[in-house]
């Protein structure tokens, strides 16, 4: 009761998803602050050694449901099992990765439990809340913090009356940190066939084609990133050229992805990946708060923009005012000249 729960997604390779491990890391801190337990929920066909990683994150209890109906993921079997666990355990907080699984499952659960759910949080904290109207005080609420629509605004959301307090978080936002001490979690097994109803199984998957991840932005030390200001998919080739020379990856803003300049998996920001490279080269990026949320912890930032007042310049270590079509080839040339 009153504990912090993390729904742990199982990947194609039968591992716990990175985003879930990041949430376990954050969940442990929240649980410590609240003085409660950290509990993981794992639904899969056969756990095997999948659970070993979880043990390194200081989890107190693992709720394990194993059934062939639970892998690959389908909405209603997972919904039924997680809903059953939550009804029984009454979590204080429940965290989900903001993936195609978490964003499918969490809202359905929130609707069934009639509780609040905040999407794509960029920070989670514990704090008190006073209702302005009633003056009622609420202790130890989950602050769900996220950039709000369209500009330089950060909203802090609370769910005073409903439980669990639910939130989704994108991959890379929370730092992955194992617990200092290894803890052996208690494992609670569930009889899935007694939980599922026949109508939960009516959707069938007839074909799946899942590819290994191609772009690894989180692991890249150098990122060359382009915004809408790059102007076209063709112009993006210059970014690839620079990234190849420097040994980095190419990323993009939401606007550039929406315009078709780059693939979605390259998107950095609140609704994309959060990165912390040693060098982030922002090309033609104005610097909306949603984008900055995904890259402002980079060790060094270079901004290349024709607008000397672009907001991104405020967080840049080097602000180059100029046309990237001119600057990038020069960067490549001088790198080649001096790097030997």
């Amino acid at each position: 009761m009153k504990n912090v729960f993390v729904y742990c997604e199982v990947t194609e390779e039968k591992r716990i998803a990175e985003v879930s491990l990041e949430l376990l890391s954050k969940g442990r801190k929240l649980a410590e602050t609240l003085g409660v337990k950290l509990e993981a929920v794992v639904l899969t066909d056969q756990a095997g050694d999948t659970l070993d990683t979880i043990q390194e994150f200081g989890v107190d209890v693992i709720h394990l449901a194993e059934s062939k109906e639970l892998f690959p993921y389908r909405t209603l079997p997972h919904f039924r099992v997680v809903h059953t666990i939550f009804e029984k355990e009454q979590p204080e907080i429940a965290l989900f990765g903001a993936t195609s699984v978490g964003r499918d499952l969490a809202p359905r659960i929130a609707s069934a439990l009639r509780c609040g759910l905040t999407a794509d949080c960029t920070s989670l904290e514990i704090g008190d809340h006073v209702d302005n109207k009633t003056g009622k005080e609420y202790k130890n609420m989950l602050y769900q913090i996220r950039p709000a629509f369209g500009g330089n605004i950060i909203a802090t959301i609370v769910n005073p009356e409903t439980r669990p307090q639910m939130a989704t978080v994108r991959e890379g936002v929370m730092k992955l940190e194992k617990a200092d001490k290894k803890k052996i979690a208690e494992i609670k097994n569930y009889k899935v066939e007694e939980i599922l109803k026949p109508e939960d199984l009516v959707i069938s998957i007839i074909e799946r084609h899942i590819e290994p991840q191609k772009v690894n932005l989180k692991g890249a030390g150098i990122i060359v990133s382009g915004g809408y200001g790059v102007g076209s998919k063709e112009n993006f080739k210059l970014l690839y050229d620079l990234a190849a020379v420097l040994g980095g990856e190419v990323a993009a803003t939401r606007a550039a992805v929406d315009a078709g300049y780059a693939e979605h998996e390259r998107q950095v920001g609140q609704t994309g990946v959060t990165v912390r490279p040693k060098l982030y080269i922002a090309c033609g990026i104005s610097g909306a708060v949603q984008h900055r949320a995904g890259m402002d912890q980079s060790a060094k930032i270079i901004s290349i923009n024709t607008d000397p007042n672009a907001p991104i310049n405020a967080i840049a270590d080097y602000a180059v005012t100029g046309d990237l079509m001119e600057v990038l080839p020069k960067m490549i040339a001088y790198y080649k000249k001096y790097s030997k």
Partner: peptide, 22 residues
């Protein structure tokens, strides 16, 4: 069930940066 507790404008503290041209 979700309430907006606070809305904060993000004020960017200007980093000391090197300003360059092309």
């Amino acid at each position: 069930p979700t309430k907006v507790k606070t809305i904060d404008n993000v004020v960017l503290a200007q980093k000391e940066n090197v300003v360059l041209t092309s």
